[in-house]
Write a protein that binds this DNA or RNA. Structure first.
Lengths: 336, 336
DNA sequence: TTGTAGGCGTTATCAG
DNA sequence: CTGATAACGCCTACAA
């Protein structure tokens, strides 16, 4: 049986009101009484029950991080690095962090008034009903991507710029046949990557070919390597490939290895997001860097602003990307 | 203003007691009334307030996952894979998942009656006070490692067996000078790895040399590669190395690359845990596999058993490990 | 400066 | 079968 405010009041010989006052640092308690109360609190090791407090204050003190269904996500460093940022920033606040990984969980979490606000991680357009989200009537932030036609503020990388830089980097090294390995088009992230890829090619005067675009439903382990291997075999004239994530790039590297395609000798590869692990690969992965930790932090900080009823300066917080040249990119050979 | 049980009762023309009864599926409500109530609940989109319910039931419906301080952890696939299992299993229950990443967070979480039980992820001996943990008076499970002299059930890999198998695998390939790259000794995981390494060498009749053991405080990015490179240079007669995690093994691979040591030609490397990403490395990493997802699931399932006041069959749930031969291991060359 | 009492949304006990 | 009503732990007017 946990010690309650009543126990403290009793032992200190005061009313619970006074205890409550010193607890919340409110004025109206004599110095001596306050001191005594504090001492009793200490002695008894009293801790306020957050649930009860939430009930009357109508605040839970929790915020939710909602990640899309599909377990692949947890092993995706794009996610864990942003989560790292979220965790760091949340540590500066008084909030607890609730996480949900499935739609059942998120329903329970969001509909039962268990949280004051939520951070949606790279949601897919088709998975979340906008009406439902709005009906929740709590502040919501989208991070990593954004929802189409959504009223929610979002924090995301400047994808178009990222893919522009990676395609251009390959172009500048002499590549003229550049493929794209992309994620599922249900994510706006992939959509933007696709568009940016297309427009950059056009800008550079390179013909666009549907053959060179590969869309992966997700990175679900072994299967990926197989299909990407096929893709590589079917496009032997391709000398470079840009990917919409480092995770995909890793798959490409492995597939290349499988297909006896040497990187960067036969094929140059550029990832995206530059997750921490990228520089540990062999060869180390060229990528377009973005401050994922900062994105996580930003998501939390604007959510807490909203929670404090402050106005946001803008609706989209777009983080710059910049190309980082490492070991997976080189000049193209004449022929593969 | 969220709709409460009162609103439902009002609109249905019944007492809140009856509403509460249909909500919790308790008997004592006429079929017709129940039907009407259900309908109103639907119309109003009523959802019970978990906090209020928790207050009277003295259950929060939350369980905590406590991860040790230090951000490296989030990008460690050992963690994220176990977390994956935790998430999967939690989905089978009615619990919400609260996470804490720092000591401040875990204090708030655990001391404010915000959770019914907790899963401690690979805790370090010095970071958690046993007395404090006991004083919380909630069920606690340790996963990934264990706490010395702790009364808490734990779920962990059979580390001793793992290192025995990896050392033996190298031995069988002809290696006689085998190093160990280990984590910090504050983790029991490292301690067991160290012991297993030592005893296996003795069993195989290989002399133990302190020079060949390298202890890394943690995998904190670039620095690791540097120091491991030094280690490799200082031990050129070493033909194989076993690591206490795949994460460390990746660092060794990168360091080897830096030092112009070719794997597995010049040096064989064995990781541990066989995280999903391992098979995507080039060359793919030899490791000792363990069912990390299963460990996560098990942690949740025994915690919920405890929460239901059921007895546990045992105190330690040890998962078997078995060596998986992949690309980073080969026969030793005569000389490096 | 202090205490009393009402209420936050639920569940549970006890009458009717 | 149904409905008051008293908790649960806490906050906060309002009184004293």
């Amino acid at each position: 049986m946990a010690v309650s405010i009543k126990d403290v009041a009793l032992k200190a010989g005061v009313s619970i009101a006074s205890v409550s006052r010193v607890l919340s640092g409110k004025p109206g308690v004599g110095a001596k009484t306050a001191e005594r109360i504090r001492q009793v609190i200490d002695e008894l090791g009293y801790r306020p029950n957050l649930g009860a407090r939430g009930l009357v204050k109508r605040k839970t003190g929790n915020i939710a991080v909602v990640v899309p269904r599909g377990s692949y996500i947890l092993n995706n460093p794009f996610f864990s690095t942003i989560l790292d940022g979220i965790a760091k920033e949340i540590d500066q606040t008084e909030f607890n962090l609730l996480m949900s990984f499935t739609s059942v969980q998120q329903q329970r979490l969001l509909e039962t008034q268990a949280v004051d606000g939520a951070i949606l991680f790279s949601p897919r357009n088709e998975e979340l009903s906008m009406d439902w989200l709005k009906s929740l009537a709590i502040p919501i932030i989208v991070v990593g991507s954004y929802l189409e036609d959504s009223p929610f503020p979002c924090v995301r990388p400047d994808d178009e710029e990222g893919v522009r830089q990676s395609v251009t980097a390959l172009f500048n090294k002499g590549h003229r046949t550049i493929g794209l390995v992309n994620g599922p088009m249900s994510s706006m992230h992939s959509v933007r990557y696709y568009k940016g890829y297309e427009s950059t090619l056009k800008y550079l005067g390179i013909p666009f070919s549907k053959e060179l675009v590969f869309e992966l439903d997700e990175f679900d382990g072994g299967k990926v390597v197989e299909v990407v291997s096929e893709f590589l075999k079917g496009n032997q004239h391709m000398t470079g490939v840009v990917c919409s994530s480092d995770f995909l790039a890793m798959g490409v590297m492995k597939a290349a290895d499988n297909a006896n395609v040497s990187i960067p000798h036969d094929l140059s590869v550029v990832g995206a997001d530059d997750v921490p692990i990228s520089s540990f690969l062999t060869p180390s992965l060229s990528s377009v860097h973005v401050d994922l930790i900062g994105m996580g932090r930003k998501a939390v900080s604007i959510l807490t602003q909203l929670l404090e009823e402050k106005e946001l300066e803008k609706k989209e917080y777009i983080f710059p990307m910049h190309y980082v040249d490492r070991g997976t990119t080189g000049t193209p050979k004449m022929k593969r």
